[in-house]
Design a protein around this nucleic acid. Structure first.
Lengths: 217, 217
DNA sequence: TTACATATTTAGACTAAGCTAAAAATATAT
DNA sequence: ATATATTTTTAGCTTAGTCTAAATATGTAA
């Protein structure tokens, strides 16, 4: 498994979650910020290694083998993110790039020990679930804040878009993983909301509400 | 700085410590387990990048710039080794390979925080000094156990050869960094010694004595 | 100093991963 | 169904890093 191969499998894994069908060459290229022709070459190689099934002009689909490898990389990425935030006191919007590098370190023993050191966490600092040793990803019953109705509450469990700007906005509003959010009002014509967080009460746009995952309570 | 470039600089840095002159193509090739022709290509490239001075048929010498980069990689390697042993409870003979990978992670902030998290250690688990942020390496006054005379003592501060077998031998004999060793006797014709460690007293060969660094007390 | 041994470099080839430009397949619109 | 647009693949080139085999320096011993 080279670094590039791992990154392709990871990208295809993520795209696979978003749509049932096989994932297209173009979609992979866009996500990887590379050219479709490069993708064609790589998926052919990964198909030979039995990590995915590739049909010309149709796209790619991970095999069980490919899925497990991808889940393993994602597991490492998310465990390292927990380490960076919990132990090194990084802020949750600073850890992605470093974890992109750390996720490729090869040592099963290391990951087992890191997992224990961190107390076997189930979620990363963005609220995304951490696959277990066997590549199984516990699905959470999370929904978008925008789906909550007036007078309902949820606990923030993650974000959809994790751009630096958005995470900083949440930080300013004191919203983090585990924060309880109450929906006090909802304007149906523009999707904006009035919510309360702790003692504060404020207005948020539809854009914000559609990028915040909550677990209903 | 690519991964390969960093590994070459690191190798040249180590060889530079062992001998004053410029380091030879063959020496680098042997240390890197590669071919001399590959080394020639790489040192030419590093010379163009002003990281070393290369003279055909003469060898290579690091510039200040190259030295700093090499020291930075070694700093990262040794800090990660401390992390693996102190925090993840790895044994000191298991950490080298993993640290070889971790040393290439690029993030100054990460290393600063890791250093603080570990309590700004001065030595790695093998007793080797950790270069500071500016690439300065504190030289220790360590000597080989074989240089100690009868009835003198030293504290184990490191090993010269760190093969798995040797480290396991030391472990069996309960010798680790910080262990006090007393020389009870020394056979001058074969260099073997009788030493005591804690309550134990035993015989060691010249080979062992020549691969163990101690600080005299 | 000539001859041999050793060290080093050069030339040319290979692999992984990427790119561009052109060709081919698929999808869509009239 | 034909034409057009879009997607995907192919062909050929590029770079980093490696290798082998051959050529060239350097060092050494008689």
């Amino acid at each position: 498994m080279t670094l590039a191969e791992e990154n392709y499998l990871k990208a295809i894994f993520h795209l696979d979650l978003e749509s049932e069908d096989e994932v297209s060459t173009n979609a992979i290229a866009e996500r990887m910020e590379t050219k479709p022709s490069s993708v064609t070459d790589m998926v052919k190689k990964l198909a030979e290694k039995k990590m995915l099934i590739y049909k010309r002009y149709k796209g790619a689909q991970l095999t069980e083998k490919g899925r497990k490898i991808a889940a393993g990389v994602i597991r490492k990425h998310r465990l390292w993110e927990v380490f960076l935030v919990e132990k090194l006191n990084f802020h949750w919007d600073e850890v992605h790039e470093i974890a992109e590098q750390l996720e490729h370190i090869k040592s099963d023993e290391l990951i087992t020990r890191l997992d224990n050191f961190l107390g076997n966490p189930d979620f990363d600092p963005h609220g995304d679930p951490i696959p277990d040793k066997d590549g199984v990803l516990k699905r959470t019953e999370k929904k978008l804040l925008s789906e909550l109705e007036k007078n309902h509450s949820g606990v923030c469990v993650g974000v959809k878009e994790s751009s630096g700007g958005f995470l900083q906005y949440l930080d300013k509003k004191k919203i983090a993983i585990g924060t309880k959010i109450n929906v006090l009002g909802k304007e149906f014509f523009d999707g904006s909301m009035v919510i309360s967080v702790g003692n504060e009460q404020f207005f948020i746009s539809k854009l914000i509400a559609e990028n915040l995952y909550v677990q209903t309570i």
